[in-house]
């Protein structure tokens, strides 16, 4: 699927919103929901009540930043420290929003606030879906499809957080660790199958640098992975694959 370049336009979906919902129900929503069960339990441990716990998921909507928020706040860090830590942990939203918006909109033009609202719902799972698994959605239906997908994921996140907070560790740790393993593996496989070689190389360098530098750099390793790994892939890919990526 990831290798084939669609030669004909996909046929219109009868219900793009429902298709987005349906494509989210399954591994994407289950994986994210259970990740948020873990986050909800973490909030409970930190002494947060239900509303703030769900509020963090709903308002921040980016797990790395949410965890950073709890850690800094529980550790007595001030607002500046919270802002810096969350921004650092969720910096990936910047390149994801630039490229994700293009994948959602295509050539469609919608008002600025609308675009902002679409990107407020952006998450890694949505981004990967739109970049690698939305070939079957005709460009004019992509906004509706994306909203169906993103809203379903958002609901799964809120429900997961509330469940984790209220029921704590009702999910046995062994089950939780297996289900939480599923999401990053799923997303890594999808992006490893990116259609263009330049992006597959980016994934390979990102993995190597992100893992290799994490012990020394901590959260900065993800940023280094993106900037250094992405730039290396950008520079060497045209030399390695001079004809492969010219189709787009």
């Amino acid at each position: 699927m990831a290798d084939s370049i669609p030669t004909t336009a996909p046929s219109p979906l009868p219900h793009p919103f429902l298709s987005g919902m349906r494509d989210c129900i399954g591994v994407p929503a289950l994986g994210l929901g259970l990740t948020m069960v873990g986050f909800g339990a973490m909030c409970q441990d930190a002494g947060l009540e239900l509303l703030p716990a769900v509020g963090i998921t709903g308002l921040v909507w980016g797990i790395a930043g949410q965890v950073a928020l709890i850690e800094i706040h529980s550790g007595g860090g001030g607002l500046v420290a919270v802002f810096v830590a969350v921004a650092l942990a969720n910096l990936r939203m910047l390149p994801m929003a630039v490229t994700g918006l293009s994948a959602v909109l295509g050539n469609r033009r919608i008002p600025y606030l609308g675009r902002l609202a679409l990107m407020q719902a952006m998450a890694i799972t949505c981004w990967v879906q739109m970049m690698t698994r939305a070939d079957h959605v005709p460009p004019p239906q992509r906004v509706t499809y994306y909203i169906g997908f993103a809203l379903t994921l958002f609901m799964a996140g809120l429900i997961g957080t509330a469940t984790g907070h209220e029921l704590g560790r009702v999910v046995p740790p062994a089950v939780l660790t297996v289900t939480i393993f599923m999401t990053p593996l799923y997303l890594l496989l999808l992006i490893s199958g990116a259609r263009q070689w330049i992006n597959r190389l980016s994934v390979a360098f990102g993995v190597a640098i992100g893992v290799g530098l994490f012990p020394t750099l901590g959260d900065w390793a993800v940023i280094a992975a993106g900037l250094v790994g992405g730039t290396i892939a950008f520079l060497i890919s045209p030399k390695l694959f001079p004809e492969r990526d010219t189709d787009q």
């Binding site: 873990g38 973490m42 390149p95 890694i124 981004w127 997303l187 994934v203 990102g206 992975a225 892939a233």
Partner: peptide
């Protein structure tokens, strides 16, 4: 194109780290 490379590499780096070194009680 470069921003796309950065996005792919950043997401990949984070997912690989979470997969291999999740931290916390899981």
């Amino acid at each position: 194109v470069w921003i796309g490379c950065v996005a792919y590499a950043m997401v990949a780096g984070l997912m690989a780290r979470v997969l291999l070194m999740p931290g916390g009680d899981i």
